[in-house]
Design a binder for these strands. Structure first.
Lengths: 195, 195
DNA sequence: CTTTATACGGAGGGTGCCTCCGTTTATCAA
DNA sequence: TTGATAAACGGAGGCACCCTCCGTATAAAG
């Protein structure tokens, strides 16, 4: 849509913005119900919009994912900010649980997050950066106090979170995944006696 | 193919067996080159066989994956057996490295392994069982000696291995993944002082 | 009310999935 | 050998989805 809006200084068209919103909420519904590989044509239909319109707004499936779940990424960021009071390890574990909870409801999120970590599209690379920065903050705080080992980067930690969460679709998914990541964090902590 | 071979006691047809082999090696090549979502029609073509023949031998994409990578699963099993001499923790870490090495070359393997863990098709559930049993063996040995904690099942550990490996396609993938899983195993070990 | 930049919609060409069934062929028994 | 028959073959065809392209519609600006 407004690829030249900036160039000509015109106001963005109202119908364009409206359709964008319709598409986003349709996508949210469709991906929730049908999983992340639901058909894009179904999304367009649900939004009451032509398939061409969908593609103009979101040139790739991933672009749509990322737009849909950007909000969630922001929630993760602001949640981390509210964790400032806790001791680092507890903060990280709490954040990790929040992450899992987020994934638990929004099944499409992983499909958005994983590629977002590599994305070079500026808009979304930005969201990914905020996530990375957030994770980095939690890690650094712990490192300063000598709680976490230092041979792991924020990005790597995020990738592990994402990877372990991929294991979906089993009874007791949430408990299992939480336990697994708790074990991982155990491994990340330096013990008082030097490890 | 031989759905009634057993019933009528006829020898299985030679061309059937031949085509099965041709399909398997074609699949191996095509999946190596084009990734796990390469087209099945390409596989059939490469094997010099009709698409119908492919589907008769392997009714689903997963069935084909699993058949292709069954061999690799067996290698993992027999590798574990050769690790009997090592102390449990070292054995597990070595096996884990072997696992990563396997995934590093056969990119399609993950797509086979993950669903195989849930599969109810008897033939392949069997391969998955052997993997589970193997992992269980490594774990149990360690538990007896009080090296590993006991709140993790073989299956869960495998799922973590698989999940973390999903993080592909980055510079230094192999080192990163190895480091991450080493950290996970650190978390799995009980420290002498009680944790 | 015109002009024009924007956006819309969906037809259409392409690819891949999977099924179905007429044809071919390997095995077996006579 | 030679038929009979079970087993396997192959690819046409129906379907769903992907994505592009372009004629049409319409909101903003003057």
């Amino acid at each position: 849509m407004g690829q030249d809006t900036a160039r000509t200084g015109r106001k963005p068209r109202a119908d364009g913005l409206r359709n964008r919103e319709k598409l986003l909420s349709a996508a949210r519904e469709v991906f929730s119900a049908g999983g992340p590989e639901a058909s894009l044509e179904a999304v367009a239909k649900r939004a009451g919009v032509g398939i061409g319109t969908l593609y103009r707004h979101f040139p790739t499936r991933e672009a749509l994912f990322q737009a849909v779940y950007m909000r969630e990424a922001d929630q993760m960021v602001s949640m981390a900010e509210s964790l400032g009071g806790l001791p680092p390890e507890e903060a990280l574990r709490t954040w990790m649980r929040g992450f899992i909870g987020m994934v638990a409801t929004k099944k499409g999120m992983l499909s958005a997050l994983a590629p977002a970590l590599d994305s070079d599209c500026p808009t979304f690379a930005d969201a990914a950066d905020r996530m990375r920065a957030t994770a980095g903050l939690l890690l650094d705080r712990g490192r300063e106090e000598g709680v976490f080992r230092s041979d792991i980067s924020p990005e790597e930690m995020l990738r592990v979170f994402v990877g372990v969460c991929y294991t979906r679709d089993i009874e007791g998914w949430r408990d299992t995944v939480t336990r697994m990541l708790d074990i991982f964090i155990d491994g990340m902590t330096c013990l008082p006696d030097g490890r």
